[in-house]
Design a protein around this nucleic acid. Sequence first.
DNA 1: TCTGGTGTTGACCAATCGGTCAGGATGTTT
DNA 2: AAACATCCTGACCGATTGGTCAACACCAGA
Lengths: 223, 223
Amino acid sequence: MTQWKTPSGRSVREKGETNGMTRERNEREILAAAERVFARHGYRGASLQDIAEQAGLPKSNVLYYMGSKRGLYVRLLERMMERWNALLDDISVEDDPAEVLEAFIRSKMQLSRRHPEGSRLFAAEILGGAPFLQDYLRGGLRDWVQARARIFEQWAERGLMDPVDPVWLIFLIWSATQHYADFEAQVLGITGKEELSDADVERITAFLTQVILKGCGVRPREA
Amino acid sequence: MTQWKTPSGRSVREKGETNGMTRERNEREILAAAERVFARHGYRGASLQDIAEQAGLPKSNVLYYMGSKRGLYVRLLERMMERWNALLDDISVEDDPAEVLEAFIRSKMQLSRRHPEGSRLFAAEILGGAPFLQDYLRGGLRDWVQARARIFEQWAERGLMDPVDPVWLIFLIWSATQHYADFEAQVLGITGKEELSDADVERITAFLTQVILKGCGVRPREA
DNA sequence: TCTGGTGTTGACCAATCGGTCAGGATGTTT
DNA sequence: AAACATCCTGACCGATTGGTCAACACCAGA
């Protein structure tokens, strides 16, 4: 016969909390913990036990809310892809190249800065061969890149910038900004800092903007 | 009592192979397989079973040669760090900035190209917070960066290039080149290619060299 | 032919994995 | 207060994990 212990003293649900509130709070806690753990150890290397402990919940509770490890992971990826899609959503040939490129670099840098764990989660997924994001890469993201590439080409035709390959320019901006999230441990180790301050990030953004704009022959925006 | 089966027909050691040869061949096979698996799944996510299968050996044999999972991983990291250290080993203030920077970009690009699995292994280690490489980042690699940074600064003082922050310039080159190994899945997905050809890599190298040199105000080398 | 070192491997182990489930606790509604 | 839905969680499961070990195969030198 199974012996049932009395429940532990401290419950996960706070006293007097309405049902909806509990769900929202626990889900938020789980997603934050899971993003950290998946980012650090990859999909296979992450364990639900670890995620549950960091969220301050029993493992069973994590599965109660998220259904499965795979489902939790997919949900995190989708949340991160929404953030990606919000980047530089509408630009036109009529815009100023310097303005757009600087906004591109700045917003991508802020994405790495505001969601470092999400950025690393994305990086780990790609590093592992993108088993869950294959379709997204060959579909939505590809269209996003092609559309912006065409605008860059038209700018080059109008003599507003050098005729560089626009796709590789996009990769250059992605990699340079992504680096400060993914390789944070390397950056901190080499610079000897404990963490990057807002001022550091601002200086790096200015550096990247200056070098890349000048490197592509874009005249800086007039003040 | 334990029942012992007769050994399987096909042995790992080839007939008539001397002892030294066997060790060398098996170790090479194991290291190659382990580099792939660790790169794809990270330290925790990699399994010895998987490594053994990809090397075509029983799991016990992998442990016989490598001792432990940790030992195998450390050995792979050390091999990769040797390759890093061979990069741009001796440069001087008297050298031509354009020549050195182009050689830097080119050799780093070749490292990503020639050892993509090793590059990804390194990336996965950093992504996970560099638990095994902390000392290297804060020690040897830091000195490497500082020495080259000082030379870049002296070039700037002599008016051979713009006074950009040399450490961030090094990070820019690292990230841009590393990207083509680590995010290979993304690059291929978006460009629609099956793999990057030598010609592709040459074009990308030329693009990066052009943009970064121009962006830093370095006069291209005279032909 | 014997002996010792090297290579090989299936059986086995404790620990941990993702996931299921029963059954109790709590909040909301009627 | 009764009925119902949501929330909570320890016990449990089969599979897999890194690692050990004893038994065996094979080659070298004596």
